[in-house]
């Protein structure tokens, strides 16, 4: 019962949030509704028994990407979107999105059908330990060590570089200011 309610709520948040984000005129509202959709997706991950993925979804997409998008939105000249019509190029974008979504949906449905067929053969569909942090840690430091390591180094370099760049620009100013 409670599982059904939580699934319905998460799915509704994800779908309705995404639809509204694509259709409202106000840019900031669209960004916030995107956040609602992302939150719903995190709920779906929880429902699928992947708490780690759900937490990472919230940390990365709501705590990071959404805040970045909100910042970018505030630099827009026309946040409320008053008196703006959708440019024609948008139709091509819509077509492309629809095609991609259809492809992904087809792949998903086919994967589901295959998984069902496999289960009929007595095979478990998902390995039992796949969602645990231990299993994810083993995967990240085992099979996927090289990409994980490279991404970590890249992010650390980016972190240090950001500080370094700001420092180089700021130092003369600060010294002039306080001289």
């Amino acid at each position: 019962m409670i599982a059904l309610v939580s699934f319905a709520a998460s799915a509704a948040l994800a779908v309705v949030g995404a639809l509204l984000a694509a259709s409202v005129r106000n840019l900031l509202h669209a960004a916030l509704l995107l956040g609602v959709s992302l939150f719903g997706t995190a709920g779906l991950y929880l429902f699928l028994g992947q708490p780690w993925l759900a937490c990472v979804q919230v940390v990365v997409y709501i705590g990071g990407i959404l805040v970045l998008i909100l910042f970018a939105t505030l630099f827009s000249s026309d946040i409320t979107g008053s008196g703006q019509r959708a440019p024609r190029a948008l139709w091509f974008a819509a077509l492309g999105t629809a095609l991609t979504t259809a492809l992904a949906a087809w792949r998903l449905v086919r994967g589901g059908v295959e998984a069902l067929a496999a289960r009929r053969g007595g095979e478990p569909v998902v390995p039992p330990a796949v969602g645990s942090t231990d299993a994810i840690g083993d995967l990240l430091l085992g099979a996927w060590f090289a990409p994980f390591f490279l991404a970590g180094v890249l992010l650390t370099v980016a972190l240090v570089a950001a500080v370094a760049i700001v420092q180089r620009h700021r130092r003369p100013e600060v010294e002039a200011e306080h001289a």
């Binding site: 780690w52 937490c55 919230v58 940390v59 709501i62 705590g63 959404l66 909100l70 942090t133 231990d134």
Partner: peptide, 25 residues
């Protein structure tokens, strides 16, 4: 009780950021 509770704390307390942004704007 969950094995990701430390991450859960970081994730949920991050929602305050969005709230302050909403309040400011």
């Amino acid at each position: 009780e969950t094995e990701v509770s430390a991450l859960f704390v970081l994730a949920t307390s991050g929602l305050v950021v969005v709230a302050l942004k909403m309040a400011g704007w």
